[in-house]
């Protein structure tokens, strides 16, 4: 039984990872936490749903298109909502994020209605035996896509544009003086973060979850916990924190019942922050 608990803890971690890495990237360069990240994720799932059903396409093939749309939306949000108020106080940025959750949730309801939707996978019945456990094919696809996206992200950060990215996150003023067009970098961070959120949302829906605009809230909160736990701006931190959170939550829910699951996540967060007030990997952004 223990190895099964561990396995599902790891799987939960893989779900948190894409979402929190994207959120953390935005924080890294812009120093803002986008409160509407969970809503972007659900919008991504809805767009995938619409493309897949209207073109009767394999949902996996619809994901890139959905990611593209969500990325464009993310850039628009950065330009229109966050950029103008940058530097006027953190609480203003929080408020804009909150306001955006209202806008996105209710836009989604207006567009898709309040009913619950599901993204059926053509491989739902397929499971693959790995050692002692059989894993559904959709989960393997999810883990594979997550890994590929993260690898691509790391590869990007090694390129020249990636360098300006890392530079901006370490010291945006210095980067600006060095000739980095930080406006572009800001937009790029939202572009990548939103695209990752859309991928995360679609994979989550394909794995057999029904959704409406309000079902993203739980995962959104988890992503924030992961980001804070790992240390703001640290992508390896977010990955390790996803693992910690996934394992802690799953074992607590197994041992003490589901009610303590969310509370345990926050107790763990509090305990870690008492010891390390800036998170596990806190104290300056790190990208590799």
């Amino acid at each position: 039984m223990i190895h099964e608990v561990l396995l599902w803890g790891l799987y939960a971690a893989s779900v948190y990872m894409l979402l929190s890495v994207g959120l953390n990237m935005i924080f890294g360069v812009m120093k803002i936490v986008n409160f509407a990240h969970g809503e972007l994720m659900i919008l991504g799932a809805y767009i995938t749903f619409s493309i897949a059903t209207s073109l009767s396409l394999n949902p996996y093939l619809a994901i890139p298109i959905s990611a593209l749309f969500t990325a464009i939306l993310g850039v628009a949000v950065e330009r229109l909502c966050f950029r103008p108020i940058l530097g006027t106080g953190k609480l203003n940025e929080i408020l804009v994020g909150l306001a955006l959750t209202y806008v996105f949730q209710n836009f989604a309801i207006t567009a898709w209605g309040p009913n619950l939707r599901s993204l059926g996978s053509p491989y739902a019945a397929l499971s693959i035996l790995i050692g002692p456990v059989s894993l559904p094919f959709d989960y393997l696809m999810g883990i594979g896509i997550t890994a590929a996206a993260l690898l691509a992200l790391f590869a990007f950060l090694r390129t020249e544009s990636g360098l300006s990215f890392r530079g901006t996150s370490q010291d945006s003023e210095a980067a600006m003086l060095m000739g980095v067009r930080i406006g572009r970098v800001f937009a790029l961070s939202f572009l990548i973060g939103s695209a990752l959120a859309a991928v995360a949302g679609s994979l989550w829906a394909i794995s057999g979850q029904m959704f409406n605009p309000f079902t993203g809230a739980h995962l959104g909160v988890r992503a924030f916990v992961v980001v804070i736990l790992g240390g703001l701006g640290s992508i390896p931190g977010a990955m390790i924190a996803s693992l910690i959170l996934g394992l802690v939550e799953t074992s607590v829910a197994f041992a003490f019942g589901g009610v303590w699951r969310e509370a345990a996540a926050f107790l763990a967060l509090t305990a870690v922050l008492i010891l390390r007030p800036m998170g596990v990997f806190g104290g300056g952004p790190r990208y590799a």
């Binding site: 779900v15 979850q209 739980h218 995962l219 197994f254 019942g257 589901g258 969310e262």
Partner: peptide, 20 residues
Amino acid sequence: AIPFKLGETDFRPHLLRIKE
């Protein structure tokens, strides 16, 4: 008898307990 949080999406740990 196992409770879960309203809005839960990951029931695997609960179900493992039930399986046991």
